[in-house]
Amino acid sequence: MKRIQLIFMAMLAAATATQAQQPLTHTQHGQLRTVINPAASLLRTGGEVSVIGRRQWVGLDGAPTVLWGSGHIGLQRSGATTGITLRHESMAVEKLTEASAFFAKSVRISETEYLGLSLNAGFSYMDGRFSQLDPQDPAFREDVRETDALVGFGVMLYRPERYYVGLSLPRLMLGNLGVGGGDNRYDFRNLYHLTAGALFHMGIDFQFRPSVLVTYSESLRPQAEASAMFYIKQVFGIGLNARSYGELAGMVQFNFSGLGLGYSYQFNPGSEPLNRRIGNTTHEIGLSYRFDRALGLL
């Protein structure tokens, strides 16, 4: 059994090292946006904390797991927000942890529209336990533990509770994290996100919220996805997410007294399960709390 686990972990490590995989992003980007673009915190100046967890390939030890977190408070008099974003990514024997502090400021450019800008700075820490795969096999490299500084920025054009369009570079590495030894196998630099969303009221009790996310990195394949959520009285929502590599996801969302709870079940209808106990499904749970307890879908 140990040998089988090592084989699977080696396959995951090889996929990371030799192929341009798709980025690990969450499907609930229409609801939890600050971890993608800190400028989106300006849409909720009352303050908010959020966390979202994603688990892929259920049943396989070492499968990709990501945890995002963010928290911010509003500086009402200056039309600004300040907060932190967190990310912990685990895949096979690799772990990547990032933490950043950000400041965002909005500028009113018309009677109803605003332009938001954000700056963030922090660090990334990579922990690669490659010797765990098979210490006797010279094909596996030595363990890697590296820390590097990162900076980033975000820009967002928005109209409160109507629409938003944003571009962010939350991770611009100042060094060469994970590329020690000159083989360029683990490159975490320069991650770009393009986001957009809108809210349409369909009568008094029904709302429709489409959103899109495009992600690009120098070391990963570009990925595009779109989501559509239908809400009843802004309290209960149900929707669908589709990605450019064939994944589909069903989503539900509950909002009450400032608390938001979301769940996503993602699968690829064109891929076969790895075996009876290891499927191609992904589970995702998101939780957020707004300090002002106000309802709001955008």
Rank of each mutant, 00 (worst) to 15 (best):
M1F: 14
T16E: 14
P23W: 05
L24K: 10
T25E: 09
Q28R: 13
L32V: 08
T34G: 09
T34H: 04
V35L: 11
G46E: 02
E48M: 11
V51M: 15
R55W: 03
R55M: 00
V58R: 15
L67P: 08
W68R: 07
W68T: 09
A80I: 00
A80M: 05
G83M: 06
T85K: 10
E89C: 06
A92K: 14
T97A: 11
S100R: 13
A101H: 04
A101T: 04
F102W: 04
K105S: 02
S106T: 06
S110E: 02
S110P: 01
S110W: 03
L115I: 07
L115N: 07
G116K: 00
L117T: 04
S131T: 11
S131D: 00
E142I: 08
E142W: 05
D143Y: 05
V144T: 00
A149Q: 07
G154S: 02
L157C: 00
Y163I: 07
L167K: 10
L169V: 13
N176M: 12
N176W: 10
L177S: 12
G181F: 04
D183L: 15
N184L: 11
L194E: 00
G197F: 06
L199M: 05
F200P: 12
P210E: 00
V212K: 15
V214W: 01
L220I: 01
L220T: 00
A224K: 04
M229K: 08
F230R: 12
K233F: 02
Q234L: 10
I238H: 10
L240T: 07
N241I: 13
Y245H: 10
Y245E: 02
G246F: 12
E247P: 09
G258A: 12
G260I: 02
G262L: 09
S264A: 14
P269W: 07
S271F: 01
I278A: 14
G279D: 02
T282E: 07
D292G: 09
A294M: 13
